[in-house]
Design a protein around this nucleic acid. Sequence first.
DNA 1: TGATTCATTGCAACCGGTTGCAAAATGCGA
DNA 2: TCGCATTTTGCAACCGGTTGCAATGAATCA
Lengths: 348, 348
Amino acid sequence: MAHNGLNLFAKETVPVGVTLKDVAEKAGVSTSAVSRTFTEGASVSPKTRAKVERAADALGYSPNALASSLTTGRTKLIGLVSNNFHNPLFLEVFDRFTRGLQDRGLRPLLVNLRVDETDPQGSVRMLKQYSVDGAIVASSTLPPAFAEAYRAAGIPVVNSFGRFTTAPQVHVVGIDNVACGRMAGETLIARGYKRVAFLGGPEQATSTQDRALGFMAALREHPEIEVTSSYAAAYSFDAGRVEMTKLLMANPAEAYFCGDDVLSIGALSAVQEAGLTCPDNIGIIGLNDMQMSGWQNINLTTIRQPVAEIIGASIDLVIGTVEDPKRHPETRLFPCRVIERGTLRPQR
Amino acid sequence: MAHNGLNLFAKETVPVGVTLKDVAEKAGVSTSAVSRTFTEGASVSPKTRAKVERAADALGYSPNALASSLTTGRTKLIGLVSNNFHNPLFLEVFDRFTRGLQDRGLRPLLVNLRVDETDPQGSVRMLKQYSVDGAIVASSTLPPAFAEAYRAAGIPVVNSFGRFTTAPQVHVVGIDNVACGRMAGETLIARGYKRVAFLGGPEQATSTQDRALGFMAALREHPEIEVTSSYAAAYSFDAGRVEMTKLLMANPAEAYFCGDDVLSIGALSAVQEAGLTCPDNIGIIGLNDMQMSGWQNINLTTIRQPVAEIIGASIDLVIGTVEDPKRHPETRLFPCRVIERGTLRPQR
DNA sequence: TGATTCATTGCAACCGGTTGCAAAATGCGA
DNA sequence: TCGCATTTTGCAACCGGTTGCAATGAATCA
């Protein structure tokens, strides 16, 4: 039916509620036969299959996934839980997660946690009510208690962008924050900076702590280099800008490792507003490599998280755990690498 | 149960599958009684209610929303359909949609459409399979055929960030792109620019056309002002940068209205890379006012879309239509306003 | 106290599917 | 053509809830 101009008498095409039974009747077979034509690997003769398919097409039937979930115990729904709806990196994260899940025949049920939400029980209830087959907790700032609560409720779960622990209760996929911190430290050292600093996000975030740890460890091997650290109030542009403005008024370091790209860009902005430039006056290296970091008028040197790999592995793991619920929790850490751009002076 | 260190023998707390029947048994009542204690406004005596609640708590019962949807016909699932997973504005859009839906007791089922997807039938099937109560199509670049296909399938739908039409088949919530274009034009005129231009996204997008239309209309009232236009290959940073670089090599206008903030920032970057500055050499005004536009080192003058209002109205409308499916399609357009920042020279 | 009304309760059918099981149909070899 | 193995099919029970209806119990009034 083409768009043929004015159509005041458009037929209300609302063939809502075609059921298995309708198809069975029309095809002259039992409901079981219809059900079987729509379930992979069930035993149906080509002849009945044809009859059923014809009837189903004619009626515009599509099976009700929720009804079938009652008996099969599978909803093909995956809870996608996050509180990171302000970090630009997460647009890419949501894009890849939703697409990846869809491509595997799963549907993402989004759960948006408030940042101040500390009790996982509310979200547990949501996930249970909708009988999700599994859940992905995508956040580096959500306490591990969330993923663990889901697991305790019997929901296969993986914590993406989570923290490595030696005795994990749940699957964790992410990066080695300590190694990243070390990488940042070594990068600054290699560039010949003599006074460096760590500018982290909120100090209580474990990812912040780990990054600081690695950074300090790298610097400990070079006692001749002076190192300091400070913490912004949030992982945000404004917090980074405010903190760097403050630092510039005192006696700033030559180069900073910022705990995150948004923070870095805020710091970068503060530097520029002070009439200074990167890397001539101050060096900055970030972490994440989100889209904007590559914009030529930002051009942030940073450490890239392999987002696609992390997400691919997360999906694989959650599916694997749905299929084998007693699968042992595992940790998958992906290596990061430095993306050379314009906020650090070149290697000596 | 506190985190008390090493706990190798953690009890597997997997109380999965507590059903209505279990609760009924434990409470010594019928399943109907249990069902009724969990449905608003049903008739249950305080005594049984207490018994049931005690039993439910003890068992950790939470009702299965999908099972109940079978009889009630309501899943409280809302399909959130989009293809805009690259526009930073949409992180805020998803945040507000998911939160807004959650706050009203609804759950967003995300459908991520590929940008090259033109046939709505696949997504129709997805939405029908999961019996969503309604759907929100959140995109300015998705053809109206999508929303209309959902409506034809009997799914209450609203098209957010969609285009105004005089005889709408579905609810549309958004901005008046023509008026925005006009506003941009008038703003440039008021700043005293004598040679202005429109720099749009892909020409076939209706939003682009409308914005160009309004812009040109405003300029038509000032025949003394020279006006030109060109189109970038996509609504992206790179496309804006490439297009502006090209323009700068010829004979650029004094000020540009760019069809979108990302595009604007790309153009801005090109200007800066050419050794020029905004607003001294070239003026730029964008549209959207996404987060990054306010960053001090971008500082883009732009026209703000009232995202929160658009989303609030969209949710209200979809709920209204779920409750009254024959509700007449309506269009709600929200006014935009200019956000003065640093890429346009001040008013004369 | 008995008659009447109203709130509560449980029964059983139903929502839209799936699936174990036994019966029916088919295919195969002799 | 027959006997047997195999495939296909339908019946009926079930998944986890909801709800109309009739029965029960409590409360009210005379």
